[in-house]
Design a protein around this nucleic acid. Structure first.
Lengths: 187, 187
DNA sequence: TTCAATTTTCAGTAATTCGTGAACTTACAA
DNA sequence: TTGTAAGTTCACGAATTACTGAAAATTGAA
């Protein structure tokens, strides 16, 4: 097949190298990178060809990427083969990824933490362990609920919030004052 | 060694099992869990003993945990051995972890994305790839900068922000209105 | 210094994960 | 139906990662 152009090439191999750190493997990382930058949907042979992976490996990689909702299956008119593309909106991608991560990596832990909290500690050591577990639960629960809430806002609102950076504090303080004023006026 | 009490036991083995999903290995996960719930700092032998790992494995695991800033080295008076404990404040833990993750998993990618953006595309395919890369860069850059900013706020402020959930939007809208009013008054 | 306690390194092995080709299944056009 | 293109599964070898015990290095008390 024809060599990938230089920018694409570098992007793809970076995703391969980082794969292990992200918790996906080299080939899955490269397949995703290739689909992400591609203008048109790709089929399994395109990918196997471009990346020089075995057809079976590509098949498994695509299944994996679908399970993470990182690629969408698409059918092209008059073509029996399955084509894949990445969602266009990067914020959408980010959300799917976060949701999937939560489902797989956070929820099971939250359940376990919850279960531990309602148990009766057998001794002092376990009583202390339970306190620590409770603290961990509160933090994880709060942040994951919060992420959920925020993800529901429009991309524009989120971008606005993010661009505010640490000055959200000022806004928060301001609303507090407004509440106090309102309370005073009421009486 | 004496068996771990039940709550601790379950917590520790859960961390071992989840390890692979988190990108750490079973033993490192269990070592951390044990230190996290322990009331007193632990030394390497305590850990090797409690978890039935080899001494060398514990040594490597502790190095790994230190590099993630998840455990702190502590010396006890009149004892030559090295003791380890987890920071008490869970929010502090969360921040260290996020910072370390950013340094290892996000920064290298951001550099690569930046480099790709300033290159001159060789053909149409690469020009499109570059556009996509730019979009990815904007999102990652914005969210990581934002996280940095927010992390600098006090835990209380952050908790306040989080408990607001999606109603931050109301506050954001409100400040916008205030700004408009102020601008009108100025003229 | 010396020596013993403690920690680290390292080579070898065990376990796990990855990637391939071949066989198998599925779906559709003729 | 039948035949073929497309997709999946699977068993196996390759590569990587995890873990151990033994040896080496380091530390600090005497």
């Amino acid at each position: 097949m024809t060599q990938l152009p230089p920018i694409t090439q570098k992007f793809v191999s970076h995703f391969g190298e980082m794969g292990s750190r992200w918790g996906i493997n080299r080939t899955v990382g490269q397949i995703y990178a290739l689909i992400f930058v591609s203008e048109k949907p790709l089929n399994a042979d395109d990918i196997a060809d471009a990346l020089e992976f075995s057809r079976s490996n590509v098949s498994i990689g695509l299944k994996e990427l679908q399970s993470w909702r990182l690629v969408k299956l698409k059918h092209l008119a008059g073509d029996r083969r399955e084509y894949f593309e990445a969602p266009q909106d990067v914020w959408e991608i980010f959300k799917s990824l976060a949701e999937e991560k939560r489902r797989r990596e956070v929820e099971p832990t939250l359940s376990m933490l919850r279960a531990s909290i309602i148990e009766t500690p057998a001794n002092d050591a376990d009583a202390h362990a339970q306190k620590r577990i409770q603290q961990m639960h509160e933090l994880i629960d709060l942040s994951s609920t919060w992420f959920d809430d925020v993800a529901r806002l429009s991309p524009e609102t989120i971008a606005r919030l993010m661009r505010m950076g640490s000055s959200v504090k000022t806004v928060l303080d301001m609303t507090d004052k407004l509440k106090i004023v309102r309370r005073k006026n009421k009486t």
